[in-house]
């Protein structure tokens, strides 16, 4: 049971969503935008988040779109991960999103919720970081376009009251095979020891990681080493402290990563 009251709001346009959020914020209700809600419900029940209002974005039409436009794929941030897998039309994203949680949970977790969540893995962002994805952000003046790489740095960083409405993926950039692997400690359904997603673009491998550090990342120095076949050098360039927790020690993660990168390069350089 969630041990406090919250009001539920379901706007049906971008403008109404932003206005509702701002009104609730002015009223001191500490609103949260609500996608699938799995993380909000879980954390609220445990007392780890407290909000007076949820603004559900599932009724905003722009958030439910799946559309191909001029070689790009436009995905609404309100699509569930199951919909992204079934209808999304981009294999690297389907493979990464398809290993988040379990199937039933993926029928509720949204693409935007996965990127904006507090749980650090956010695996759905990995393929999106490998191409020059555009984030369509909703705010007071309406929708605006920003590079995902500018608004997603370890976490999604948007001004209060703004929300991620859509993602525009330039499919033509990734022109070769792709690679997506999630390693867990034991069970198929678990948080990742690591998730590694790669694409080939312009003859070079691009690779992004989750579970390795406390945030998902893509790193230029690691990619340089990997494209030169220097796996151990790439591991030496991991850009932050390697996670050392119940899922696996830092040394074990580095050991597993070496094998995963070997597999990745075999696929991406084939």
């Amino acid at each position: 049971m969630i041990p406090f009251d919250l009001s539920y709001h379901r706007p049906d346009s971008v403008e109404e969503a932003v206005a509702t959020y701002r009104r609730l914020e002015r009223d001191g209700r500490r609103p949260l935008y609500y996608g699938g809600g799995t993380e909000i419900i879980t954390m609220a029940r445990l007392g780890q988040v407290r909000t007076g209002a949820g603004v559900d974005l599932k009724g905003v039409p722009e958030c439910g779109i799946v559309e191909r436009r001029n070689g790009s794929l436009l995905l609404g941030a309100g699509l569930t991960l199951a919909e992204v897998c079934e209808r999304g039309g981009w294999a690297p994203l389907a493979d990464a999103a398809g290993r988040v949680a379990d199937h039933t949970s993926r029928c509720k977790i949204t693409l935007g919720g996965n990127l904006a969540g507090q749980i650090p893995y956010r695996e759905a962002v990995l393929p999106l970081l490998l191409v020059d994805t555009v984030a369509v952000v909703a705010g007071e003046p309406g929708l605006r376009r920003e590079r995902l790489a500018d608004v997603f740095r370890a976490t999604l960083r948007l001004p209060p009251g703004d929300f991620l409405a859509q993602l525009e993926v330039p499919l033509h950039e990734a022109d070769g095979p792709h690679f997506a692997v999630k390693r867990t400690r034991l069970d198929w359904v678990d948080y990742p020891l690591m998730t590694v997603v790669g694409v080939r673009a312009g003859g070079r491998a691009r690779i992004a990681f989750s579970g390795l550090c406390g945030y998902p990342f893509r790193d230029a120095a690691m990619e340089r080493d990997l494209n030169a076949g220097r796996i151990q050098d790439a591991i030496g360039h991991i850009p932050g402290p390697v996670a050392d927790d119940l899922h696996g020690s830092a040394d074990y993660r580095r050991h597993v990563l070496a094998g995963v990168l070997q597999d990745a390069l075999e696929v991406l350089r084939a």
């Binding site: 539920y8 809600g37 599932k58 509720k108």
Partner: peptide
């Protein structure tokens, strides 16, 4: 998954859905 129901054709864990939704 013990609380799973079907909502608009999809399996949903009902502990993870607000009634208002």
């Amino acid at each position: 998954g013990a609380c799973t129901v079907i909502v608009d054709g999809a399996p949903i864990k009902s502990c993870m859905m607000l009634a208002q939704e």
